[in-house]
């Protein structure tokens, strides 16, 4: 089962090691004729972390840092290029669709865009019942119907609303319908890809509270993908900060928020807009480098205010320091 040689820790629901994901840009006849080089986007470059049972683990970073790709690879919407995925002690990295079937029941996803994540032509009850019926979580349609109504009740809908279509609901309501769908097969693990970033602030709080209530009620573990540090601080136990497909710092929430070590984490925390303080100075200039041509050295070197010469040539590895892992030559 576990061919990584590492011991599986039964406390972990998910163990990801050295996960790599790349995309090749479309390469047509014309490109071949003109001899244009093939372009490969290095989206995720050897990411390792684990999610404990009943825990919220967050991956944080800016757009294009590979956090969503990581989540989508873990739930096997994308085939991993290399690395291993251990789910509930099983190595699912190379599972066929048929082998994935029982795993699918246990790992579901909450999506970012409440307007695109529900099939506009399905009624709410069909949306929630489809996974149940497919996985025989209910003996017949009648039982599925009862279960569906119970789930809708949990996420805050009245029974008569089950007959409506998605467009009759607001963004926050749709997100709750998406959560009900994710819960339909009694999963133990949910990957939530920016679940509140498309929502209004007041609705954001409702959805976050709901997600946390459900964790207690259904004994869920979450992989929480987000760019908003204040949201992450509120929900998570541990987190990893991603930059250009690498995890640059990873550990317990309080350690990282109280004393960030990596210059990128420091910058993110410094510029996160909050009500209680004004941003003193903007520590970062420039933009994220292209994931097509990865820098040889530290991925963050081009924007780092504390760059040294070694950073240009050697890529730092994650090292344990002060109760967390950090990849930086400063330490």
């Amino acid at each position: 089962m576990n061919n990584t040689g590492k011991m599986h820790d039964p406390k972990n629901i998910l163990e990801v090691s050295d996960l790599v994901q790349t995309f090749t840009q479309p390469y047509g006849i014309l490109d071949r004729l003109t001899g244009r080089p093939k372009k490969t986007v290095h989206a995720v470059n050897g990411v390792s972390f684990s999610v404990r049972r009943g825990e919220v683990f967050s991956l944080v970073g800016e757009s294009g840092c590979g956090k969503s790709t990581t989540a989508r690879t873990i739930v096997r919407l994308l085939e991993p290029k290399s690395g291993t995925l251990l789910f509930d002690g099983q190595d699912i990295t190379k599972f066929t669709p048929a082998e994935m079937m029982p795993v699918r029941k246990k790992m579901q996803m909450i999506f970012q865009d409440p307007y695109a994540s529900l099939n506009p032509r399905q009624r709410i009850r069909e949306i929630v019942m489809e996974p149940m019926l497919f996985h025989r979580e209910a003996a017949d349609r009648e039982e599925a119907h009862v279960k569906m109504l119970r789930l809708l009740d949990i996420v805050g809908f009245r029974p008569e609303q089950a007959d409506r279509y998605p467009h009759q609901f607001s963004g926050g309501q749709r997100q709750r319908i998406g959560i009900a769908r994710a819960l339909a097969t009694n999963p133990t693990f949910l990957a939530a890809d920016e679940p509140v970033s498309a929502l209004d602030v007041s609705i954001q709080a409702q959805v976050l509270n709901l997600m946390m209530d459900l964790r207690d009620e259904f004994n869920l573990s979450y992989l929480f993908i987000a760019h908003d540090l204040s949201v992450v601080r509120h929900v998570t136990e541990r987190l990893g900060i991603m930059y250009l497909g690498f995890i640059v710092e990873q550990g317990e929430r309080d350690r990282i928020f109280e004393k960030p070590l990596h210059p990128y984490t420091q910058a993110l925390l410094a510029v996160a807009p909050t009500l209680d303080r004004k941003i003193a100075a903007v520590p970062l200039s420039g933009d994220v480098p292209s994931p097509i041509h990865l820098p040889v050295g530290c991925p963050f070197a081009s924007r780092c205010p504390q760059k040294m010469s070694i950073c240009e040539t050697n890529r730092p590895k994650l090292r344990i320091l002060d109760g967390r892992a950090v990849a930086c030559h400063l330490y």
């Binding site: 709080a205 509270n209 204040s230 928020f257 909050t274």
Partner: peptide, 18 residues
Amino acid sequence: LESIPKMAGARTPRLPQI
């Protein structure tokens, strides 16, 4: 204002929500 998660101070288990 209350429903915005805070960057500092103690965490409440639930966010105040409208």
